[in-house]
């Protein structure tokens, strides 16, 4: 077991009241899992991912990575965000990746550049290695962010709806590429999404959260799941020809 989330309740301060984002959420992620957290907007799934990233502390429960409590952000849990501005605009594609490696002290400059180029090749951006992020399309930026995250070889890759802002064609392609890269690296992925098809495609294990505050509804394997059943569970709807099965 790589990541253990045990009874985690998360709260954050809004303008003048406390918002409970998740309530006593527990799940375990095994090594090389593609673990998807799926839920409607407002179920606290992004907040949960940020907590795993170490950006905020649970008010109850604990998060253990390899048995060690998570207390602060660190390069063993690399984030890929939804926003396109996650690349440093003042660095070229290569430098963005190389800087991540040198800043975290993983590699000296020369070796960092070599590894950066290797991963740029993997996400098929070799032509753009010396470009600045602002000339890249949204999909390319997300590819660079993915290459950067993979190059850092984290214990776990945290992806916060990374393809949500892309057009449908690019999103399909990116999902395909992510799966290919996973085949090559077998990296552990924790992936947040609100799209049921994306969850089924990306994940091998899916955690369903309810909204306001997020509580675990089910944890299922994606082989045994189908979209209609998940939708029924998420929204407490009866599906035609029977009641929503309990998992």
């Amino acid at each position: 077991m790589l990541l253990a989330v045990e009874g985690v309740t998360l709260q954050y301060r809004a303008k003048d009241h406390l918002v409970t984002a998740t309530y006593r959420v527990s799940f375990n992620v095994l090594r090389s899992d593609r673990f998807v957290i799926l839920g409607p907007s407002g179920c606290g799934k992004s907040t949960l991912l940020k907590a795993v990233g170490g950006y905020l502390r649970p008010v109850e429960g604990c998060i253990l990575l390899d048995g060690v409590p998570v207390t602060a952000p660190g390069p063993d849990r690399v984030f890929v965000f939804q926003e396109f501005d996650q690349l440093l605009p003042w660095k070229t594609v290569t430098d963005n990746i190389a800087f991540a490696l040198t800043a975290t002290g993983k590699l000296p400059r020369r070796a960092a550049e070599e590894r950066a180029l290797h991963f740029i090749d993997k996400v098929k951006l070799a032509e753009f290695r010396n470009s600045y992020p602002h000339v890249l399309s949204g999909g390319m930026k997300q590819r660079v962010a993915l290459a950067r995250a993979l190059a850092m070889e984290p214990q776990i890759l945290l992806m916060d709806e990374p393809f949500a802002a892309l057009d449908a064609l690019t999103r399909n392609q990116m999902q395909e590429e992510l799966l290919q890269l996973w085949e090559e690296t077998k990296i552990t992925v924790l992936f947040v999404t609100h799209s049921i098809p994306e969850a089924l495609r990306i994940g091998n294990r899916i955690l369903l959260l309810s909204a306001h505050p997020g509580q675990v509804k089910a944890e299922i394997s994606s082989q045994s799941a189908d979209a209609a059943r998940i939708e029924a569970m998420l929204f407490d709807r009866e599906i035609q020809g029977g009641s929503a099965p309990r998992v």
Binding site: G53, A72, P73, G74, P75, R77, E83, Q86, A103, T104
Partner: peptide, 18 residues
């Protein structure tokens, strides 16, 4: 400075000066 960039910086575990 965008919150995303800040979070990226924190993700690298940089020292305060860096």
């Amino acid at each position: 400075v965008s919150p995303t960039l800040r979070m990226v910086g924190q993700n690298y575990g940089l020292s305060r000066t860096a």
